[in-house]
Amino acid sequence: MEVVDPQQLGMFTEGELMSVGMDTFIHRIDSTEVIYQPRRKRAKLIGKYLMGDLLGEGSYGKVKEVLDSETLCRRAVKILKKKKLRRIPNGEANVKKEIQLLRRLRHKNVIQLVDVLYNEEKQKMYMVMEYCVCGMQEMLDSVPEKRFPVCQAHGYFCQLIDGLEYLHSQGIVHKDIKPGNLLLTTGGTLKISDLGVAEALHPFAADDTCRTSQGSPAFQPPEIANGLDTFSGFKVDIWSAGVTLYNITTGLYPFEGDNIYKLFENIGKGSYAIPGDCGPPLSDLLKGMLEYEPAKRFSIRQIRQHSWFRKKHPPAEAPVPIPPSPDTKDRWRSMTVVPYLEDLHGADEDEDLFDIEDDIIYTQDFTVPGQVPEEEASHNGQRRGLPKAVCMNGTEAAQLSTKSRAEGRAPNPARKACSASSKIRRLSACKQQ
């Protein structure tokens, strides 16, 4: 084909351009004929944790799935940006308080904090938690009735009371019990989460009196709706648990309003109706937990002794299953770290194939690490110290990083047969305790 000078094309009309061969290198194709290559998922490591896909996002930050490269346990990490926390009232204080509380709590029905990582340079905090497959609110939203069968609701409620009793025994008032803060594992274990607005009572406090509340409006008791200066913290949790039980068994809320002012007005009056299909035992329990006067409201001991709580409820309806993943529609909620794991395991070791967030990740503290002497050669063979940054567990980050890069360049065919977990650990520049 004859090559045409581009400067001469402006002298031709459209018809003349076609005659000189423009149609031979300008093609129009339908979008259905285009085959897009999927974007390669680059592996990203935060300390010893391999990052997966997004699980959810809230006002405080994002939650992603991660894999512990040492234990191969599935975890969830809450990623918090200090810049964003400053824009939220009491944001930083709530996060630090939640970390302090979770560090000393150990119960099967309370979410466990596994690790805390802090990135000084990017001003990011990573709260590594045990993995929960789904939230209770997500399960309720997945069915038209917006409720659980009585047998399933009873099982979840009993676990909620177990976890709540443990928190109260530790002198902690949750203040925000609701389905949105109750998570579930694949085995059906309920976990109380989000202790950001919780309050730890003084060890020598005479009672459970509280003065502040930041919980969700629909789950607040009349004493808070009416603006009382002080109130019983434990009875606030009992009320919120009662509203939660009402919601998961009926699909409704005892109090509603077009806006928060109308909602608080209705809560302050204390008038509500219980659907007739709840039955006398459940209705009596709800009335005891939603008692207007805090002094007359049920205690956890009274809830445990109630006939509806103690009764064994046979399954009359099919239980609400864990819904498919909202993004991938995966009904099994498979591990989202698998594509990243395959990338590390299947590809040659190259620095361009993975990302390490930083050479140094500070753990379990908000301060910069200490310094240790770096050896410097002298005339008599002895070495003197220069400062060298280290990880919180004493690992020399720069030395590990250099060693990792040197190993990656060394030709050794046997290394390709290593397991995925050992490869992740070798790529991680800074081991965590």
Rank of each mutant, 00 (worst) to 15 (best):
L80W: 12
V20R: 14
E293S: 06
Y118G: 09
M127L: 02
R40T: 15
D229Q: 12
D207S: 04
R147M: 06
H306Y: 01
A389W: 06
H379F: 07
L341V: 10
L245A: 01
N119F: 08
I224L: 09
Q37G: 07
H345W: 14
N94S: 09
L427V: 08
E223K: 01
S271W: 02
A417H: 04
W239R: 01
Q170W: 08
R383S: 10
V66N: 02
Q399R: 04
T250G: 04
S232Q: 06
D343Y: 09
T209Q: 13
R211L: 08
P411M: 14
L184R: 02
Q364W: 04
P339M: 15
E130R: 02
L184A: 03
E291V: 09
R104V: 04
P315T: 08
E130K: 10
L167Y: 02
E342V: 12
V320F: 06
W308Y: 00
K81N: 11
K122L: 11
K83W: 13
Q159L: 03
E223S: 02
A316M: 06
N181Y: 00
A225T: 15
E374F: 10
G187P: 12
N247Y: 10
H174L: 01
P89E: 15
G171R: 09
P222T: 02
S69P: 06
H107W: 01
R74I: 07
D176A: 00
V390T: 14
R310G: 04
P280Q: 11
R415N: 14
E65Q: 08
E349P: 11
R74A: 01
R409K: 11
E375H: 09
V4F: 05
L117G: 04
T328A: 15
I274D: 05
T186M: 02
V4S: 06
A93H: 15
I303V: 12
N90W: 03
A218Y: 10
G91R: 06
T336D: 01
F231A: 15
G61P: 05
L427Y: 04
F148L: 04
C418E: 14
E396I: 14
L50R: 12
K146D: 02
G251Y: 01
P89Q: 11
I238R: 00
F148E: 01
M139R: 05
L54D: 07
K403N: 11
T395G: 12
Q214A: 08
G370R: 08
P315S: 11
L85C: 07
D229A: 05
M129T: 05
P221C: 04
V337I: 12
R331P: 13
E374S: 12
Y261F: 02
Q305K: 02
V133P: 13
Y166F: 06
S421L: 15
L167S: 01
K296N: 07
V143A: 10
M289E: 00
Y156W: 01
D348H: 08
V390H: 05
G233A: 10
L353W: 07
C151I: 03
L290Y: 00
G227L: 03
L117F: 04
I260G: 07
R425Y: 13
K235C: 11
P369V: 08
C134T: 15
L228F: 10
D284P: 00
S299R: 13
R40V: 15
P387E: 14
F231D: 14
N90L: 06
A198H: 13
G227F: 07
P179R: 00
K269H: 12
V150H: 09
G251A: 03
D343W: 13
R304L: 06
R86G: 10
A429P: 03
H379M: 13
H313W: 06
E2K: 08
T186Y: 07
M392W: 03
Q37V: 11
C73F: 03
R28P: 02
P281L: 08
M392C: 10
K82L: 12
I300R: 00
T212Y: 11
K62Q: 14
R297D: 01
K191L: 01
A241P: 03
V128W: 04
R426I: 08
F148I: 10
T230N: 08
V133I: 09
L201C: 07
D348I: 11
L50G: 05
I238T: 10
P275M: 02
S216L: 01
M136L: 06
P314I: 12
I224S: 10
A316F: 08
K108F: 06
R211M: 11
A389Q: 08
R75Y: 13
P387A: 10
H313D: 08
N181M: 00
A273C: 03
T185N: 02
S325W: 03
A410W: 15
V368S: 07
E120Q: 08
L182E: 00
K84S: 15
D352H: 09
A398D: 08
H306I: 04
R425T: 13
E256Y: 11
R383K: 14
N90S: 08
S31I: 11
M139W: 09
S378R: 08
T328E: 12
L183H: 11
G180P: 04
A93G: 03
I356Q: 14
K287Y: 04
F366P: 15
P221D: 00
R383C: 09
S325R: 14
D365C: 13
S142T: 12
R425D: 15
T395I: 05
P323C: 09
I172L: 03
Y166S: 05
L353F: 09
N109Q: 05
D229W: 02
Y362M: 15
K44L: 10
P281V: 08
V243S: 03
Q214N: 09
G56V: 01
I361A: 12
F354I: 10
R333A: 09
S271T: 08
R103G: 03
K96F: 04
L160P: 00
V110I: 03
V390E: 12
K178W: 02
K124I: 13
P6E: 09
L54K: 15
D359S: 07
S193R: 00
V66R: 00
E407D: 14
M18W: 04
L113G: 01
M136Q: 01
S378Q: 04
I300A: 13
S142C: 08
V63E: 01
L344A: 13
E291R: 13
E199I: 05
V150R: 08
P221R: 01
S401T: 05
P369C: 10
S213V: 06
G242D: 00
K403L: 09
C134S: 12
V95H: 15
T336H: 14
H107R: 01
Q7Y: 08
S299W: 09
P413I: 14
L17V: 10
L245D: 00
G56C: 02
D343A: 12
L85A: 15
A410D: 08
D350R: 15
Y272H: 06
A200C: 07
V77R: 02
